[in-house]
């Protein structure tokens, strides 16, 4: 085994020596190391994921999981790949929940609120119970974006629903039996494609690509050997990484390719 853990894996390597705690998967007890994520713990217990597992990085939305703790009545929620097990938790994965999804012709759909109202009239059955927001593993204010869609405010709905990973847990809890996340996706597509002004800098960059601005740099990378590539990738000096939570104005020191 290599002494250097590949970037990204250091966080999720199990400490095998850690304490074991009982968890209950669909009612059956397993004793698992307390440092594991739910997904790793289930694999530790012998489960093999064919569905309900995707990126393992908290982005794809395939591993939505609900659980209860021994001492409260609340429904807790998390992505199995991101949530560490807790002693005594009862859990089940809800990787998929049946949800109504209306097929629409993007080209033919006008950028008006009524297009969404027609595709999803059940939208108007929302009772503002807020169960959707409470269950969202991404802290998306689902009830608020549904309210924004009902009044035709696509900009607000896009902004509020932007972190949605389409896991579908909101739909599983909806009193009005709607699929909020599909409705929001339609709204984002219409807003992004037909309402929001086009990004001018993107067109500039595409022109740069076409004009061959990046050709030399890519050729150099293609010719490099593995050791050089590793050095370029791993070294802080060779690769400048945008810091977390950096301001919009942040630019790399080497801006040859901007």
């Amino acid at each position: 085994m290599s002494t250097t853990a590949p970037i990204g894996e250091d966080k999720i390597v199990a400490k095998v020596t850690s304490k074991h705690v009982p968890i209950y998967v669909m009612g059956k007890r397993y004793d698992v190391p307390d440092s594991l994520t739910i997904m790793k713990a289930m694999e530790y217990a012998g489960y093999k994921f064919i569905r309900g597992c995707g990126c393992r990085g908290g982005i794809c939305g395939a591993c939505g999981t609900v659980y209860k703790k021994p001492d409260d009545y609340k429904i807790h929620v998390g992505l199995a790949c991101q949530t560490v097990v807790q002693e005594g938790m009862h859990l089940t994965q809800i990787p998929f929940y049946p949800a109504t999804r209306t097929v629409f012709d993007y080209e033919q759909t006008p950028a008006v609120a009524e297009a969404v109202f027609k595709a999803y009239p059940e939208l108007f059955r929302c009772v503002a119970c807020n169960a959707c927001t409470k269950i969202c593993p991404m802290d998306v204010p689902v009830m608020d974006y549904v309210a924004a869609i009902k009044r035709g405010d696509f900009e607000k709905a896009t902004e509020l629903s932007f972190d949605c990973i389409q896991c579908g847990l909101c739909a599983s809890r909806c009193m009005a039996e709607m699929a909020q996340y599909h409705i929001a996706q339609m709204v984002r597509r219409i807003y992004g494609g037909k309402i929001k002004p086009k990004a001018t800098h993107l067109a500039v960059m595409v022109d740069n690509v076409k004009a061959g601005k990046f050709k030399d740099g890519l050729e150099q990378l293609k010719k490099a050997d593995v050791a050089t590539l590793k050095q370029l990738y791993m070294s802080k000096d060779a690769r400048e990484i945008e810091p977390n939570m950096s301001e919009d104005e942040w630019v790399p020191t080497n801006n040859a390719y901007l």
Partner: peptide, 23 residues
Amino acid sequence: DPRQLEATVIDEAPQAAMVGCFR
């Protein structure tokens, strides 16, 4: 059945009509 509402009606009716009717 909300899904059986005529498209032309949803185009023109105020949201209040849909909300009231479905409730």
